[in-house]
Amino acid sequence: MVTAGQVLPWMLLAAAAGGLGAAARFLMDGEIRLRWRGALPLSTLVINVAGSLLLGLTCGLVGTLPTPSLVALVSETTTPTAAISSDPWTLGVALALVGFCGGFTTFSTAMYEVTQLLLNRRTWMAVGYWVGSAGAAVIAVVLGMMSGAQL
């Protein structure tokens, strides 16, 4: 049985890393926008794909899938993820990276940008961005996993 006291510190760590990710996204987005004037929302695309790559890499390095549930992650149960809970440093670094990627990437902005492309009558670009972002992010996760598993 896992108590709240066991989970809370990890949750705070992941949330703080998420805040760092959000700040990094703000900075990176602004820098990309200074250099890219095209109609495609390239900055969000780059951010989401890069974050997905990092998340896949983290999973590959740790060697397990981080379940969304921290309780399952921290508890010494029979889940496949229990293996990393024995080492607090590995767990901490993995959670910080997962939290960072979660805050760095953003689904809501991507969807909002699709609406803006649609409203600006860039229909095909909207559809391409909408579906293409998802495809690129999924491929990035898989590539990250494969790379991480090799390291």
Partner: peptide, 12 residues
């Protein structure tokens, strides 16, 4: 909202 939602989690 940017931190609340996650694209990498969706991809994973």
């Amino acid at each position: 909202f940017g931190g609340f939602t996650t694209y990498s989690g969706f991809a994973l």
